[in-house]
Write a protein that binds this DNA or RNA. Structure first.
Lengths: 106, 106
DNA sequence: TATATGTGCAACTTTTTGGTTTCGCAAATT
DNA sequence: AATTTGCGAAACCAAAAAGTTGCACATATA
């Protein structure tokens, strides 16, 4: 089973979960209430997110709070860095302008 | 068919292609030479990348050069922005330190 | 003109993924 | 003690994705 952050954030529901629990830890039931799926489906997403260490669990009685590991999110940022360097120079900005003009012609 | 950047970068080969053509446009054959797959498989990846506008084609005789659209890459950066704001404050950095200590105990 | 090369595309197969259902377990509540 | 609640996990299913093979169609080259 392939388990990396990029595969994890490919699913829109998982991105939703990530955004949701970024602010505060939540239980599976509470998370499921925000989406149009069952608790079990959310549970499966949380498992995937846990396996690639994007999320940590905090047991509290019979409830389990899931919290985002921001540190892991940085890895996406890290990968993006190589491109961020590029899109900041003038040459590529000019290229974008040309593409836009081309599209408008159609 | 779901076609968004997040699904596009989920595949490791596609991430490889993106990095490869970021510096200079390349033909499918040239790209395929860098990976352990067939030209057709690469062609399929390029189609997906084109469909979600991460890549543009430039025909030159019978060869087709594929080039990265850096502008589209910014969308990932844009999504990441909401988290970047968070991981820069002290509270979360403290949280990371605590997690690290916890892991070392095991 | 005949042949080689670079390519996209469609059909097919295999693998992966996301969801549902059902179950068991432990913690709360009655 | 009996019941409810919150949860993970396994088994199963449908849909999607990734790869393979074979083809057609241009553009080069002989």
């Amino acid at each position: 089973m392939r388990r990396d952050i990029f595969q994890a954030i490919a699913d829109p529901t998982r991105r939703g979960i990530i955004t949701l629990i970024a602010l505060q830890a939540m239980t599976p039931n509470a998370i499921a209430a925000h989406f149009d799926t069952t608790r079990q489906a959310v549970s499966k997403h949380l498992r995937i997110l846990t396996e690639c260490e994007l999320v940590i669990q905090k047991q509290q009685g019979r409830e389990i709070y899931y919290q985002l590991r921001l540190n892991k999110m940085k890895e996406i940022d890290k990968w993006l860095q190589q491109f961020r360097d590029m899109w900041e120079d003038r040459f590529n900005q000019l290229d974008d302008v040309l593409s836009t003009l081309k599209n408008k012609k159609k």
